[in-house]
């Protein structure tokens, strides 16, 4: 299969700091998850493949053409940045129409394409409100809308689910899967593994400026599951909760965390543990005020992988 996105021995330095180090990767059409902890080089890689920065060495090609300084190619590419990039006084519709104008569409086409994109991201009702009044999730959806409004073949989404409510997340995940199934190429960056798992099995893991893993997410998940999963639970009766948790074989250790004010549990079967916890809390009248998985962040995944 001909790769849609090719990064060939690309490196990018910021002065003496290496952003991306001699990366070579070829991505076919469909959805690819770009995963990496903060500072891994994920953003640099995304900036390279969207033509926002030029590689210090090597090449970056999209749809067979160099992406750097290639505006005609940008007409075939959609990009949703992580940061907000709005004029708050514009309405969502005006924002989209203005950006579509940069593609050279006529005013009537801009209106039509904006309306379609708003429908796709389920923002029709709020389309004529000022962006200043939008919630974080709505802003994210408008950003996604501007990335797809011109019907691009390749879509880059940088942390698109950040700040979205569960409904919005589910809708966006579904859209991304549909675009991938329709033959578009979608690259989604995220630092949350389960978000990417919901969109695609194909992932690209970046750490310290290099590609550390490429392939099926389930293989990575299996690797993670071989290691004890650490979960911090904040509650009003930590000793009672600890005693009850120790009754179960998959709980490997329990530690009281004075600084966090709760119980830190190590479990070999996090899925089973999560499904059992509400029942234990309800049965024994324990009020759980927070649950935090210290291993859900990707840094922990990388710690496992390099161990």
């Amino acid at each position: 299969m001909t790769p849609v996105i090719e990064v060939i021995e690309a490196s990018r330095w910021y002065g003496q700091v290496v952003g991306i180090n001699d990366v070579s990767v070829a991505l076919p059409s469909g959805v690819t998850g770009l995963l990496g902890p903060n500072g891994a080089g994920k953003s640099t890689l995304l900036k390279l493949v969207t033509g926002q920065i030029r590689p210090s060495t090597g090449q970056v090609r999209v749809l067979g053409e160099p992406i750097w300084d290639n505006p005609p190619l940008m007409a075939r590419v959609g990009f949703c940045p992580e940061q907000d990039a709005f004029y708050d006084q514009l309405t969502g519709r005006r924002f989209l129409e203005g950006l579509l104008g940069l593609h050279g569409f006529t005013r009537a086409d801009c209106r039509e394409l904006a309306t379609r994109a708003l429908e796709v991201v389920a923002m029709q009702e709020a389309a004529d409100r000022k962006i200043a009044s939008y919630s974080k999730g709505m802003r994210q959806r408008i950003k996604v809308a501007q990335a797809i409004a011109h019907d691009p073949e390749v879509i880059f989404l940088d942390e698109p689910l950040n700040g979205m409510d569960p409904m919005g997340r589910r809708h966006t995940v579904q859209l991304i899967r549909e675009w991938g199934a329709a033959g578009r190429t979608v690259v989604v960056s995220s630092h949350v593994l389960h978000e990417v798992e919901a969109m695609t099995p194909r992932i690209l893991m970046v750490n310290q400026g290099r590609i550390v893993a490429e392939g099926d997410v389930h293989e990575i998940r299996a690797l993670i599951d071989e290691h004890p999963h650490r979960i911090l639970i904040g509650c009003d009766q930590p000793r009672l909760l600890a005693a009850r948790l120790m009754d179960h074989e998959d709980v490997l250790s329990v530690r009281f965390s004075a600084e966090e004010g709760g119980v830190e549990v190590a479990t070999a079967r996090p899925d089973r543990f999560y499904s059992r916890l509400p029942e234990i809390a309800e049965t024994h009248g324990i009020r759980v005020d927070r649950i935090f998985s210290q291993d859900d962040n990707l840094q922990a995944v990388f710690d496992y992988l390099v161990r």
């Binding site: 033509g51 940008m74 007409a75 907000d84």
Partner: peptide
């Protein structure tokens, strides 16, 4: 407003 990032991701 970071609008440059979006403007220059268009054919411009």
């Amino acid at each position: 407003t970071n609008a440059l990032q979006i403007y220059l991701s268009k054919p411009l």
